[in-house]
Design a protein around this nucleic acid. Structure first.
Lengths: 223, 223
DNA sequence: ACCCACCGTTCAGGTTGCCGTCAGATGGAC
DNA sequence: GTCCATCTGACGGCAACCTGAACGGTGGGT
């Protein structure tokens, strides 16, 4: 899925872009409305992420203009919490969904999938790994058909692995995923949580690479 | 989507109708409440646009009567009176959304889509979960065969869960479902209502996932 | 006009269970 | 065997959650 990100906050933009790419989408980043205003360009995308922090409500004008021009590319609005009126105005202007900053990157993934599903007919966010059935959007997980309950942190960690199967993740990367912009940790918390996940998911799901990190192992043959 | 427009302002009615048709919906236009009062007629529509400019608050009476009669067709209220009391009265009477005239026609389209989204994708309104028999369309509920009576808010909350069984809903999502276009809330209202639902439906129906939200758990085995 | 029942919301206080941490055990690399 | 990274069981603190109660508003009944 090709995504156009219209943003003027560089830091948030990077985080968002990283998450989108991690979900397997491609993304272009338009720092200025003028860039995105090119209808021919924008029409080539499957989804537009629009930041309403842009000055003078030009984001909304952009959105309305696109709708008037008949462009029906789905649009998700990103907006600050204290600008509820903007958000409503955005929906009224034809946005398909919105997210309030600061938002969970997981929630962004869910919304993108939802919009994509609504318009593209991509049905299943379901992942199957071994005897595990995973629905990241619904946060449901079954092991051999039997429901498994994960806590918030366990979900966050598991999510990091599921998004990058077969990729080796260093502890630093995992740490960043769990505690992206807030406090750091100072102990073996990640080891503890990997252990807890193994207890719930089975011992062979997460592989330890001594000295480097961890990796989610996907069986090569038939699952 | 078939839409019934209950209106007495001819000019606005035409504009609205044009916009709706432009959105790909079909619309009928009832100029008098008496016309729409025919429940058999109204029940055939997917959405009702109700103008509260109708004299003597008969629009609200109409709305209430329909709800009492068990008709749950989504209703969007159009009104020029921006008095809060009217708005609250309308929502209390069972309206799903609210628009103050004069409104942007894009706004109307957005609301129509939102309401349609909320009620769409529910071909079979009859649901059985555990010992609960649920009819979302009729808003009737039985627990072990015995009728259970829910208030409006309780229904709204329960509906959010039933529409997405086994899916974890964050408090933000639930809030959005309950208070989509009106003001947000500032306390533990959702927790209180979850508690009330559990008291009426049984303690195991709604599962708490600490830090993430709630989930309606459907038994895996025989339901 | 008055009273009463009910609903939605808020608040305060009690309770729970997750999170992060630590210490000791385990096991691979050399 | 030694070193060191990782594993594991256990624990305290605290935020998230639950619950009973109260309050204002609305509507129905008399």
């Amino acid at each position: 899925m090709r995504i156009l990100l219209v943003e003027d906050d560089a830091v948030l933009g990077m985080a968002v872009r990283d998450q989108i790419v991690a979900d397997g989408h491609s993304v272009d980043w338009a720092q200025r409305i003028a860039d995105a205003g090119d209808a021919v360009l924008a029409a080539a995308y499957d989804l537009i992420l629009l930041d309403l922090m842009l000055p003078d409500g030009r984001g909304l004008d952009f959105l309305k203009a696109r709708r008037v021009a008949g462009d029906v590319t789905p649009v998700i609005i990103l907006t600050a919490r204290d600008q509820i009126s903007d958000r409503i105005a955005g929906l009224n202007a034809g946005a398909d969904d919105y997210l309030v900053k600061p938002f969970d990157l997981f929630e962004l993934s869910a919304r993108i999938r939802a919009v994509g599903r609504r318009y593209g007919g991509n049905p299943n966010p379901l992942v199957r790994i071994g005897d595990l059935d995973i629905d990241l959007a619904a946060r449901t997980l079954r092991r051999a058909g039997k429901p498994v309950r994960l806590t918030a942190r366990e979900w966050a960690l598991f999510e990091a692995f599921v998004q990058r199967p077969n990729v080796l993740l260093s502890k630093a990367q995992i740490e960043e995923h769990l505690y992206s912009f807030s406090d750091e940790i100072e102990s073996n918390t990640i080891e503890v949580y990997v252990g807890r996940l193994r207890k719930k998911l089975g011992p062979d799901v997460i592989e330890t690479v001594r000295g480097l990190g961890y990796r989610l192992g996907v069986p090569v043959g038939a699952g």
